[in-house]
């Protein structure tokens, strides 16, 4: 018998964890699914039947999805590091790797996919019913993105090379990859927080993230203040001819940086979560 990874045993762990999935997350899912419905109802009741575009709807769905990602680990695995309740989890005859894979499966894949499928289905039904929601949000979102690229091209008088670069940076594949990686990063941060903190797990992790953000902003503001001349010189190089060239490259660098950042955060946080599962004492 393999003591690290056995697929038969992994299946049992997934089934074991799945048994309490609906019980622990169904209420949160129902509340999150009902928010777009409430917005639709209120918008329908406004005198001019306020139209909500697909970009705003996708933004609402993705914000609510982020809330789900933040709360899922603590809802599904809150007992894991509890000195009393966690004993059952630690003593379950499965390896730490199998328990970790199951945790990632439910927090990173199952919970967001179920939420997203439900949210898009509700949005589509509401769009069919008419009123403030028009068109299918996800399809319109990518259409809007395409229109945005064309608009930028026209406004900035982009050449073929710059436009191809921009199109590649904002392609559906990159957008989906970026969303998937940021989902993984967000989820892994809160999975780690769930294993580290015993009480008020989500709140403490949000507090730490806010603190890190403030520290980062202080460093950035100081950097900008100390390198004002250098930064002014960089922007001085921009003129009418090379603005599109510079902007498209800046977009590419920032998207690549965010992809790398999300990937690094995900790998580090997932490894730390696994390490905590393996070494947690009760």
């Amino acid at each position: 018998m393999n003591n690290t990874l056995d697929f038969n045993r992994l299946g049992k762990v997934v089934k074991h964890d799945g048994a309490s999935f609906a019980q622990n997350l169904s209420l949160a899912l129902i509340i999150l699914w009902s928010i777009p419905l409430v917005i639709w109802l209120f918008s329908s009741l406004t005198p001019n039947n306020g139209h909500i575009d697909s970009y705003s709807r996708i933004s609402i769905i993705s914000t609510l999805g982020t809330i789900l990602l933040i709360m899922a680990p603590a809802r599904l695995y809150k007992y894991c590091n509890d000195s009393r309740q966690g004993i059952r989890y630690a003593m379950l005859p499965a390896s730490s790797l199998e328990k970790f894979i199951s945790m990632v499966f439910y927090c990173v894949i199952v919970a967001p996919v179920i939420y997203l499928a439900g949210a898009l289905a509700i949005d589509s039904i509401l769009a069919v019913l008419g009123g403030p929601y028009e068109g299918f949000a996800i399809a319109d979102y990518f259409n809007d993105l395409s229109q945005f690229r064309h608009m930028v091209r026209q406004k900035m008088m982009m050449g073929e090379e710059d436009y191809t670069l921009l199109a590649n940076c904002l392609s559906p594949t990159i957008i989906i990859l970026s969303k998937a990686l940021s989902t993984l990063a967000m989820s892994s941060v809160f999975m780690f927080g769930n294993m580290v903190f015993k009480k008020r797990k989500t709140g403490k992790m949000i507090g730490i993230l806010i603190l890190l953000f403030i520290i980062f902003m202080i460093i950035m503001v100081n950097y900008v203040a100390n390198h004002e001349e250098q930064i002014s010189r960089w922007f001085g190089y921009m003129n009418e001819e090379n603005t599109a060239y510079v902007i498209t490259r800046m977009i590419r660098v920032s998207i690549n940086a965010s992809l790398i950042f999300s990937a690094v955060v995900s790998v580090v946080m997932l490894w730390l979560t696994y390490y905590k599962i393996k070494t947690q004492k009760y």
């Binding site: 018998m1 003591n3 056995d6 045993r9 009393r84 004993i87 005859p93 499965a94 390896s95």
Partner: peptide
């Protein structure tokens, strides 16, 4: 090391018992 082969042969019943929202059968 909490290896599965070890864990499947031990059971620990702590003093403070669990409060699961499920039947003992499930």
């Amino acid at each position: 090391m909490r290896q599965p082969q070890f864990l499947q042969n031990v059971f620990f019943l702590p003093e403070e018992v669990i409060t699961e929202d499920t039947t003992p059968e499930k």
